[in-house]
């Protein structure tokens, strides 16, 4: 293990160190005179991303994007996908589409409508509460309400039908002195 690790480290040290040495002699980081001054030594180890623009932090756009699903198959909304899955190329494209619509003066509802027209209902994170989808929203609540009402009704009826409580001391009155003593002895042995 150790030998493998040190071998690997030395290889990479050679690579990185080699570059640094190279850079130092050339006087320009990265060695390539055309490259930007702050170029990473191993740029391919990091995903490249377009720079953040004003619209990216717009609260309205974020809200809209939380309601729309990314179509790459990740099951996430556009906002979450583009800020989490940096390998996805779909969500940045969808994001640009949202930004474009927003900049053209579309309201959030209009943006969502435009997406539904283009991609179908599947684009929504939560189905619109209409038609069969209503079942999705209402069935659990209705089931619980129905069961609860039924339960309460049964309880009420039982309570009403229950006989007047028997005199409370009937049980205790039957306890003989011997039993009473026995019970008290047992109780006194219970750790308090």
């Amino acid at each position: 293990m150790i030998s493998r690790r040190s071998f690997f480290t030395s290889i990479s040290a050679l690579l990185v160190g080699g570059r640094a040495l190279h850079a130092a002699t050339q006087g320009s980081p990265g060695g390539d005179p055309e490259a930007p001054a702050d170029r990473l030594s191993i740029p391919e180890a990091v995903q490249s991303r377009p720079a953040v623009v004003e619209g990216d932090n717009n609260g309205i756009i974020q809200t809209v994007e939380h309601k729309l699903k990314c179509t790459c198959g990740c099951n996430l909304d556009i906002f979450t996908c583009r800020t989490t899955d940096f390998t996805c190329t779909v969500s940045p494209a969808l994001h640009r589409q949202v930004v474009a619509l927003h900049e053209n003066g579309a309201t959030p509802d209009q943006i969502i409508d435009a997406f539904v027209t283009e991609y179908g209902e599947e684009i929504l994170m939560a189905p619109p509460p209409e038609g069969f989808n209503l079942a999705g929203y209402l069935v659990p609540g209705l089931a619980i309400t129905a069961a609860g009402t039924l339960l309460a009704a049964i309880l009420m009826r039982r309570q009403a039908a229950a006989p007047v409580p028997a005199p409370v001391l009937t049980g205790a009155a039957n306890v003989s002195a011997e039993d009473q003593a026995r019970l008290e002895r047992a109780l006194s042995e219970v750790v308090d």
Partner: peptide, 19 residues
């Protein structure tokens, strides 16, 4: 929904939160 309507509707966090 896929069985009933032939569309695989997503129900994400907004749906679950609302319910």
């Amino acid at each position: 929904t896929e069985a009933v309507r032939g569309v695989k509707i997503t129900v994400g966090p907004p749906f679950f939160n609302r319910v």
